[in-house]
Design a protein around this nucleic acid. Structure first.
Length: 719
DNA sequence: AGCACGCCGACT
DNA sequence: GTCGGCGTGCTC
């Protein structure tokens, strides 16, 4: 009797055997419905064996072998096994985080073969529509040519319902999706740098990792599009990973425009479950040519994978911060190597890990030195020294003057302050009391308009205390600068200016961010105040001034990655200034104008910054010169967490190539009333660290710890 | 993780 | 006398 070895979505690092008469190797990669304990689960067949792995356990029969989906191919199974081993996560849970949620449901999931839709008579259809029904008319015009489902869905949320109705009325017919490659629309001519990059990518044979370095506006996307066009010509598929921001629709639009008629699958958190599952199936069947998505898209089966692109590869959102803590960028590199195809990692400010790999010759660096738009000037940078200067609520006279200047010229300014709220903390000047969160080890942020104190870590909120809880003093003052306070100040300073604040608080309502972008584009805003949210990707043609305040915190942080993040953030926010014909100006208020980070930024010299930073990392013994993993524990009391970790350290295998540090309280020790601590382990050898972790986790999993929740983070981004 | 079993406190 | 608290143990 053959046995199916199943990966089940349970936190147990082993497979489970079930018997199925007349099963053979073709069952591998299919879903199976089984009874597990007292519940029914759907698992993935990993292996077919002649005998059970454990003799002496009663083995249940498989209830049903599902044949609805494309069989998970061997390369994806290998990829998932790699993730399970590398990140020390149970294979069953890896499988189920990698697949669309729908596939965890017991019902079969059927997807009709992809086909295109075309109007039987486009003119007649158009004539039958009301003049003002602009969406309907737009769709009808598109349908003169064959359109894919994804293409139609991308047009509007309600487009698909209209198409279905027209189909029923016999206005549309289904035509076979042409696999012959449609002609891409020609893009703008490439400059020499772009052309060289495209040539390097398309001419590399087998696996090659290209680090594409270019500032905002240097035309990285054009390079991707040309490289992808070449891959499509060869009848192959492309996988494009993008960070988790609301930029995906814009990029998707650009792809659809460039490759009309090509089935492009979009996979990100905004895509509904069913659509995600359908897209996955289409990609796995080879019907879709391009998969464009956030980190989860890295696991999509692509039988004819020809190219992988990771845009903004330094972005932290490629690392999942819970469950299977994978880095989609690193998994993508593994995948490209596995498929023996080229991968492009694009960024203006590459992760130092990637930069180091390029220095070591493992990655090929491709530089895009110039701005792609002819005549466009890079922004001019200026440091505004603030040490021993009088500041009007945090703004230097020079900064205020620059804003006034733009107002006079009818141009927009952006004040970048990565700290939302009114002020970072409420302070009693009598006794020195500071408002702190009762559930976290964090300060409460002052939100003046709502007259509330809020914890930005756990979401706790409370009303302003009427008097200081420490000494009863009623004169409490907000300390420091936040976006709300800045908004208030600027509105006072420039009463004639239209001020708009963009942060997580002001953009809480759905659609408000899109609305805000519209207002900015319409020129109905003079001064923008923004956090992180505004730093990425959006183009504001009328914006000519970016003033950065409060950046110095990133210079001397306890976190060794803080300066890398600061550089990337400043480079990114500077990219918002001065597009098209108007030159932009970037002002950075700082107490440390001589700091090498700012000097490198001013010279637009990432190479210099990276070299300095890498030298420091080497000296201090930090990644990428060492590999790290963190064992995190969380319990009701710190003592319990620490005790667990001390026990864990005692269980650690001995390996002189691996350093196990003492347990310490986490930097955010208390979060939402749970105490957190961690153990750092590191090694100069990735292989030795991997073997160590495997042994350690095995020993640790044998222990039972009811009160403590723990997890392992391999290659952690934050300690 | 679920989901059971099991053994002690406050309720109709 | 039962309902239900969550500690402990198991899942092919």
């Amino acid at each position: 009797m053959p046995y199916l070895r199943l990966a089940l979505d349970v936190p147990l690092a082993r497979l489970f055997d079930y018997e199925l008469a007349d099963a053979d190797a073709s069952a591998v990669g299919k879903r199976a419905v089984v009874s597990f304990g007292r519940r029914a689960l759907v698992g993935m067949v990993i292996e077919v064996a002649d005998s059970p792995a454990d003799a002496g356990v009663a083995i249940k029969p498989v209830e049903a072998l599902l044949d609805d989906l494309p069989t998970l191919p061997a390369d994806i199974l290998d990829l998932l096994q790699f993730c399970a081993d590398y990140y020390q996560h149970p294979l069953g849970q890896v499988v189920h985080t990698a697949l669309p949620g729908r596939f965890r449901e017991i019902a079969p999931y059927r997807v009709a073969p992809a086909c295109a839709y075309q109007a039987v008579d486009a003119e007649a259809l158009l004539d039958s529509l009301p003049k003002r029904a602009s969406l309907q008319r737009r769709l009808a015009a598109m349908l003169a040519e064959p359109c894919s489902e994804a293409q139609l869905r991308a047009e509007s949320g309600s487009a698909w319902r209209l198409v279905q109705a027209w189909l029923e009325q016999g206005q549309l017919r289904q035509v076979a999706l042409s696999l012959a490659l449609p002609q891409p629309v020609a893009g703008p001519a490439l400059n020499p740098g772009q052309a060289a990059a495209v040539a390097a990518i398309t001419q590399s044979a087998g696996f090659a990792c290209h680090l594409l370095c270019g500032i905002t506006g240097s035309g990285k996307t054009e390079v991707y599009l040309h490289a992808i066009a070449e891959v499509l010509q060869r009848g192959l598929q492309a996988l494009v990973l993008v960070p988790e921001i609301n930029l995906t629709p814009q990029l998707e639009g650009r792809f659809r425009q460039r490759f009309p008629g090509v089935e492009i699958i979009s996979l990100h958190s905004g895509v509904a479950d069913g659509e995600r599952a359908t897209g996955w199936v289409r990609a796995a069947r080879g019907e879709a040519a391009i998969v464009l998505g956030t980190r989860l898209a890295v696991f999509t089966p692509l039988p004819r994978l020809g190219l992988v692109v990771v845009d903004e590869e330094h972005d932290a959102s490629f690392k999942q911060q819970e469950g299977l803590r994978y880095s989609a960028r690193d998994v993508a590199v593994y995948r490209a190597r596995q498929a023996q195809v080229a991968i492009v990692l694009g960024s203006a400010t590459p992760a130092l890990e990637s930069w180091y790999n390029a220095e070591a010759g493992r990655y090929k660096r491709l530089a895009l030195p110039q701005r792609a738009v002819a005549g466009a000037q890079p922004p001019s940078w200026q440091l505004v020294p603030t040490r021993r200067q009088h500041l009007a609520d945090g703004l230097h006279a020079h900064t205020l003057g620059a804003i006034e200047n733009r107002l006079a010229r009818g141009e927009q300014s952006l004040i970048f302050l990565n700290r939302r709220g009114y002020a970072p903390v409420m302070h009693c000047s009598e006794c020195g009391w500071l408002a702190a969160c009762t559930r976290c080890s964090a300060r409460l942020t002052v939100h003046m308009r709502e007259r509330r104190l809020r914890c930005h870590h756990c979401g706790w909120e409370e009303r302003f205390p009427p008097a200081c809880p420490g000494c009863g003093n009623s004169d409490m003052k907000p300390l420091g600068q936040g976006t709300q306070r800045l908004e208030e100040l600027l509105a006072q300073r420039f009463p004639q200016a239209r001020v708009l604040r963009i942060d997580r608080d002001s953009m809480r309502r759905k659609g408000s961010f899109e609305a805000a972008l519209k207002t900015i584009h319409a020129g109905e805003v003079d001064i923008l105040i923004g956090t992180q949210m505004l730093a990425k990707g959006h183009d504001f043609p009328a914006l000519t001034l970016v003033a950065v305040i409060g950046a110095d915190g990133g210079l001397y942080s306890a976190d060794f990655r803080a300066s890398e993040r600061l550089y990337a953030q400043l480079a990114q926010v500077a990219g918002r200034a001065g597009r098209a014909d108007k030159p932009g100006e970037v002002l950075i208020q700082t107490d440390f104008p001589e700091h090498p980070l700012y000097q490198a930024l001013l010279a637009d010299n990432y190479a210099d910054f990276a070299a300095t930073e890498l030298a420091e990392r080497k000296l201090a013994g930090f990644p990428p010169y060492l590999y790290q993993a963190v064992l995190r524990a969380e319990a009701d009391t710190l003592a319990e967490a620490m005790q667990f970790l001390q026990g864990a350290v005692a269980l650690a295998p001995l390996d002189e190539a691996v350093t196990v540090w003492d347990p310490v309280a986490a930097s955010m020790m208390r979060l939402a009333n749970r105490e957190r601590a961690q153990v750092l382990v590191q090694s100069g050898s990735r292989a030795r660290l991997g073997a160590f972790l495997a042994g350690w986790m095995q020993a640790l999993r044998a222990e039972r710890s009811a009160k403590v929740r723990w997890s392992l983070d391999v290659d952690p981004l934050e300690l």
